[in-house]
């Protein structure tokens, strides 16, 4: 679950144009074919670096469980992780649909989007029946 709205800036404008369409955009180097992380600044050469939608699936390479204390003093446990996208780049994200006491290493996950404020913010959720 996404906690609060995120504002786009110049660097994330194209990425957020994709998320509202339900796409998680990567950057593809047309010269080498390499698929780069979304954060790669393609404005250095827009003809060489193009935007392509990722498959949206990946594998958990590390995870942690954040303990958040609410105003009422109660603690909630929020699983987060690093996902290796099927295309290669890593992405730091919350992970929904998992038991925080499970070993999440190697768990297959898929991107989802939550509309908060003006933008659709990506997060990842477990694909059932995987480990």
């Amino acid at each position: 679950m996404i906690g609060f709205p995120v504002q786009r800036d110049e660097a994330t404008a194209e990425f957020f144009d994709g998320t509202v369409r339900g796409e998680f955009l990567l950057v593809r180097d047309t010269r080498t074919g390499a698929l780069l992380a979304p954060q790669f600044d393609r404005s250095v050469d827009p003809r060489r670096y193009e935007l392509v939608p990722a498959a949206g699936t990946g594998t958990v390479v590390s995870w942690a469980v954040v303990h958040q204390r609410g105003a009422d003093g109660a603690t909630s446990r929020v699983p987060v992780g690093i996902v290796e996208l099927d295309e290669g780049p890593w992405w730091w994200t919350s992970i929904e649909g998992v038991d925080p006491d499970d070993n999440l290493l190697g768990r297959h996950v898929v991107v989802a989007f939550e509309k908060v404020g003006d933008e659709a913010v990506p997060y990842f959720t477990a694909i059932e029946g995987t480990a």
Partner: peptide, 22 residues
């Protein structure tokens, strides 16, 4: 919460504690 860092923050990863835990 703006830009790339904002996305990570909204996903619950906003403290060095969490990043080093990973």
């Amino acid at each position: 919460p703006t830009g790339w860092r904002g996305i990570t923050t909204a996903n619950g990863i906003y403290s060095a504690n969490t990043m080093y835990a990973l």
